[in-house]
């Protein structure tokens, strides 16, 4: 695939993180030599044990962080030359534990639009709720009184309110039971297929990876190895741990 069709390109990226060693702050290299390409409308899973740097990697795509080395391209443009606010309106993100603002569900859905001096009609808000499987009467309810699974769905609807080109998902289902998790993943897959919204998903859950069934980057021990699908990634994952070969 040429760089032109790629939505995201990670070009020889490294991530450093400040840590404490014997009480003194030092810089530790978490990941290095990461090169990945994500096609427009495609899907990519970032799979690996906790603490491997998957989430740190994900945060580069909407520039919540910058890489310590290398560069990230979005639609052919270096992210450092891209307005970060416009970028984040095009590249949505769903966190592991969603934060809903302490207002109604409807106001939560309208927040991202309000920051751009736009409004969200009640009709559009209810349609978003419907898409994530929540009934209309949720629109006026206080967001922070909802259950964890309901909050995650509202957070997803809120991220979708901007009709993003791509959605970054950081363990989106880890706080949910398996049924709710599958519901969310299926919904994301439907969006991906029907509207071409690119999905980049961080997970350490095997069942999520299998359901996503897409090119998978194994992240472990400071390196990233790319596999064409979930099965081959899982096959390399012997003894429950992960043995990586240099990609």
């Amino acid at each position: 695939m040429s760089v032109a069709e790629a939505l995201f390109v990670l070009d020889d990226v490294a991530i450093d993180r400040p840590v404490l060693r014997e009480g003194r702050p030092i810089t530790s290299r978490v990941l290095e030599q990461v090169s990945l390409t994500v096609p427009a409308g495609g899907r990519l899973a970032l799979y690996g044990p906790s603490g491997s740097g998957k989430s740190s990697l994900l945060r580069l795509f909407n520039r919540l962080d910058d890489p310590s080395a290398g560069r990230v391209l979005f639609a052919g443009t270096d992210l450092r030359d891209y307005d970060p606010i416009i970028l984040r309106r095009r590249v949505g993100m769903l966190f592991q534990q969603p934060h809903l603002f302490d207002v109604t569900v409807g106001e939560n859905l309208a927040y991202p639009l309000r920051w751009q001096q736009q409004t969200l009609t009640r009709e559009d808000g209810v349609a978003l709720l419907c898409e994530v499987g929540l009934p209309e009467d949720f629109y006026g309810r206080r967001a922070q009184q909802l259950s964890g699974g309901q909050q995650q769905r509202v957070a997803l609807a809120r991220a979708l309110a901007l009709s993003p080109t791509a959605l970054l998902l950081d363990e989106p289902t880890s706080a949910l039971d398996e049924e709710s998790a599958h519901l969310i993943v299926d919904l994301l897959l439907r969006r991906n297929v029907e509207t071409g919204m690119t999905l980049i998903t961080v997970t350490h859950a095997r069942h999520v990876l299998e359901r996503l069934n897409c090119p998978t980057a194994l992240v472990d021990a400071g390196r990233v190895a790319l596999f064409p699908d979930a099965a081959s990634a899982l096959a390399s994952d012997v003894r429950g741990g992960m043995v990586l070969e240099e990609s």
């Binding site: 984040r88 934060h99 991202p112 920051w115």
Partner: peptide, 13 residues
């Protein structure tokens, strides 16, 4: 922090 980053990720300045 989570609240602030949620807003940033949604395109807030």
């Amino acid at each position: 922090r989570r609240e602030v980053e949620t807003a940033l990720a949604l395109g807030a300045s």
